[in-house]
Write a protein that binds this DNA or RNA. Sequence first.
DNA 1: TTGATATAACTAATATTATTAGTTAAAATG
DNA 2: CATTTTAACTAATAATATTAGTTATATCAA
Lengths: 204, 204
Amino acid sequence: MTTRNNINLDKIIQAAAEIIDVHGLENLTLSNLSQKLKIRSPSLYNHIKGLQDIRRLLSLHGLKQLLSVLTRAAVGRSSDEAMREMAKAYLRFARKHPGLYEVTHMAPSHSDHDLYKTGQEIVDLVTQVLEAYQMEPTDTIHIARAFRSQLHGFASLEQRRGFGMSVDLDDSFMHMIDTLLAGLHVRYPKDGQRPSAQFQTGQS
Amino acid sequence: MTTRNNINLDKIIQAAAEIIDVHGLENLTLSNLSQKLKIRSPSLYNHIKGLQDIRRLLSLHGLKQLLSVLTRAAVGRSSDEAMREMAKAYLRFARKHPGLYEVTHMAPSHSDHDLYKTGQEIVDLVTQVLEAYQMEPTDTIHIARAFRSQLHGFASLEQRRGFGMSVDLDDSFMHMIDTLLAGLHVRYPKDGQRPSAQFQTGQS
DNA sequence: TTGATATAACTAATATTATTAGTTAAAATG
DNA sequence: CATTTTAACTAATAATATTAGTTATATCAA
């Protein structure tokens, strides 16, 4: 199965990921991608269905990396600590791979099962961590959505330079997460877990 | 100043806004825009600098509408009520004008003063509402950023179909806002404002 | 080793796009 | 009514994605 130029799907995705992380998603073209791989652009069609297909594959690639990063942040931790570490890992990923992060949030092409499945695995991970708070299933979904909204909103606004520069961004991020956790504790108080002493800020 | 075909900048922006709200931002081309206006595409250059310029103008247009919508939601209201109404108005706008909302979050071209100014006016509006909570100025910025992150994250994820369909989206949205407010009350308790009775859900 | 097959590269061509240059005609203005 | 401004136009170019058809290389069975 090895071929003339040693090009395979993995190398294409790798090269495309580099392009979008450095130059942005809108600057990924079959032209510069094929140049990077030292082939002519129509040759790419032997491996992929077209530009949309590459974007889809990148999206899946990014989601899987994000899932991995979040999972590693959550293992061996629980409750607030797990939430905070997942949040930090999420933002770290978005900052380190801006293009990959951006492509991850493309509207999935409806019946793309792989993409749906991986997205669901991330939701399941968050849901699992939230089980520690012993809410109703519906509330768990509410909070998971709120958590994702905060993370994505912050990462996205930061990436698009939507925030001013007056106040440290890491401080704001941890403050946001801690405020969510504070709200969680008020609304779902468990015995032995009073709403206090979760107000330290500062990020790694 | 009136001309042959009665086309001016306003009509161009109007037509472009319709296209992106119906067909999405990525489907705005000079080709279909000029067809909608019944002129040839190079004629557009008599009014605008190019496609990027139209996008920039749309961004400003959207941002101004959003500012207007948020301002009207906040007048005559304060504290939690103002925050909730602003949140609802924000999501209503994003849902009603998906394309305009999307273009609003393009990375501004660095030194675009109009865009920066309008964005700042929105931040100032939120900051003003948050003054009721009597926090430190730095904390006000933290919370304003958290609020925007939630709103944008939710709107964006919803638009990209990032949420499952298991639980009502309006319920989740109000739950998210109420959790933020609950967190606010714990962290910045004012006399006469105890953290209770803000847990109703359901949206207009 | 060799011949057959699969495949990954290629060239050539097309349609769509944004954009520029140069032209024309219509409106506005004196 | 003459002049000037300007908003439309046509023609042309460069970049893009994509398709069709071709060639050459690697794999593999005999």
